[in-house]
Every structure is written in C-alpha cells, then in structure tokens.
C-alpha cells in the first residue's frame, strides 16, 4: 500500500494562492473609480472585442482581470443571476451586494475544492441612487471581498497603480479629469497609453434606466 505524502494545509493554500496570483499578474490592470456622475471603469486592453468590462444589470457593471475564459464565465453567470432575480422579483431587487456575495461563495468554493483556483480578480460596481452611494466590490481568486467607496485597482501591478491613482483622487472629478488620471496611473511614468490601448465604460446617472455605456474610440479620443 502506498502512503500519500503529507502536505500541511497551510502549504496547500499557499501554493494555490501563489498559482492564482501568478496567473493574474501576467495580465494588465484596470481601475474602477467613482466620479461626479457615476462610476468610471478603465482597463488596459488592446482588444476591441474581448471585453474586460461589461454590463450586468441596469445599474451594475462587471470588470475582470486574469484568465479571459474564467472571468468571462463569471460575467455570464452574473448576468444570469441578475436577470433571473429581476424577472422573478422586480428590477429594484437586483443589487450588487448580493451578487458580490454569490461570486465570493463560488470563488471560495472553487479555491478550496477544485483542482485549481480561478486565476481571476473581479469587480462588481453599482451606481448609487438617491441617498444610497455608489459602491465597488472587489473580489479575489479565493473569495475575499473588499468593498470600496472611492476606487479599486485590479491586476498584477495593483499596488503601484493604486499609489499613483490614490495620490490625485477626488470623488467629485469630472469624467474627463478622472479618465486622464486613470490612464496616467495605468501607464506609469514610462508608458503613454492612447485610446487604442484602452477599454473604457461608465455607469452614469445621466443614462436613464440602463446606466452602462461603453466609450468607443472617437469618444475616448476627444476626452483624452
């Protein structure tokens, strides 16, 4: 009879976390930030069709970094969750907090029970209404949830980007200023990012029921 090697649970978890972090750090980063009229999501993404930022529901958006097929699966699952809930109850009953919780449960479950953890970090952003402020839920590969009321940076280089962006951050920024700061923070001192390197979307209070709007190349060029 063969005796399996004993591996300490701490070691198993550490190995899994290292594996997930390594996968995530290979990709490019994104910033979700609250500005005057809503939430701005700025991602470094040269692809026009493989999106990192998408619409989930009327006032909720999704952003992901890491392995594309994995965060895209989470994006679709989020749309399914929100649409089913909105159809069963009402559109007002769909909220980001409960969506962030089911994401966290799923990611936590995969992290401990599956062969490999998901190599993703995701952001669930909800535009505020009346007295409720806008919220950002940042969820890690192991199901850790962090809620932010200012901005959130996802991806490999998040610490230095966060430092750069946090130094200038103002909650009542206009879209133009907020976008400029996000692009500078993503690029860092050495790189200069242009409209073709970016994927940008907003959740804006001025957009009616469906607050989500993608800013295409012409709009970005005039804003930058």
């Amino acid at each position: 009879m063969t005796v399996p090697f004993y591996v300490a649970p701490e070691q198993v978890m550490k190995d899994r976390a290292d594996y997930a972090r390594k996968g995530i750090s290979r990709g490019r980063s994104l910033i979700g930030s609250i500005y005057k009229d809503g939430i701005l999501l700025t991602a470094e993404n040269p692809s026009r069709s493989l999106h990192k930022v998408s619409e989930i529901y009327d006032r909720i958006a999704f952003a992901g970094v890491g392995k594309y097929n994995e965060f895209d699966q989470l994006r679709v699952a989020g749309i399914r969750h929100a649409d089913t809930k909105g159809f069963t109850y009402s559109r007002d009953d769909v909220d980001a907090r409960s969506l962030a919780n089911v994401y966290a449960q799923y990611l936590g479950q995969v992290f401990t029970h599956e062969m490999k953890p998901m190599e993703v970090e995701i952001l669930v952003a909800e535009l505020g209404i009346d007295e409720f402020p806008s919220q950002l839920f940042h969820i890690l590969y192991d199901g850790t949830v962090m809620d932010e009321s200012r901005f959130s940076v996802l991806g490999g280089d998040s610490e230095s980007i966060s430092e750069r962006f946090g130094a200038d951050y103002q909650p009542d920024w206009s879209l133009e200023v907020a976008l400029g700061a996000a692009v500078r923070a993503l690029g860092g001192p050495e790189r200069d990012l242009g409209p073709r390197d970016l994927e940008v979307a907003i959740l804006s209070k001025n957009n009616g029921r469906r607050a989500f709007d993608r800013l295409g190349y012409p709009a970005l060029e005039s804003l930058l």
Binding site: A77, G78, R80, H81, V102, Q105
Partner: peptide, 8 residues
C-alpha cells in the same frame, strides 16, 4: 440563490 454556473 447560488451562482448559476453550468457544465459546458
């Protein structure tokens, strides 16, 4: 409600 994830 759990996250609706399906087998391929």
């Amino acid at each position: 409600m759990a996250l609706p994830v399906f087998e391929t």
